[in-house]
């Protein structure tokens, strides 16, 4: 029992990971970087964080059927549309 309590919950690890990813986004911007790689990198980080929310906060990872693919598809389509608008 004590051993179980000493291990951080999975959601706590996800929360910390998202905080770190957010800092990376901000730090990259603060370095004055710009252009294609900044846009792609920052967009990819945003999509990863979005998927973490879908899977672990909304809890769709454990839900059967189309719900998780629907939200993942939403993120991928939105990411593709934004990347297209920035580069094409």
């Amino acid at each position: 029992m004590t051993k179980t309590l000493s291990i951080p919950r999975p959601c706590t690890r996800i929360w910390l990971l998202m905080m770190v990813l957010t800092f990376i986004t901000w730090a990259v911007a603060q370095l004055g970087l710009s252009g294609q790689w900044l846009i792609l990198g920052v967009l990819a980080i945003a999509l990863v964080k979005g998927q973490l929310v879908v899977d672990h906060f909304m809890g769709l990872r454990r839900v059967r059927g189309f719900w998780r693919p629907l939200l993942t598809g939403y993120l991928l389509l939105l990411g593709a549309a934004l990347a297209g608008a920035f580069f094409l």
Partner: peptide
């Protein structure tokens, strides 16, 4: 909870899009 996570999810895209990506 689900509604609140949606509000969070939207901001996670909005922040880099409007504040960072250029």
């Amino acid at each position: 909870a689900s509604y609140w996570h949606m509000v969070d999810l939207v901001w996670l895209i909005l922040f880099p899009l409007v504040y960072v990506m250029h």
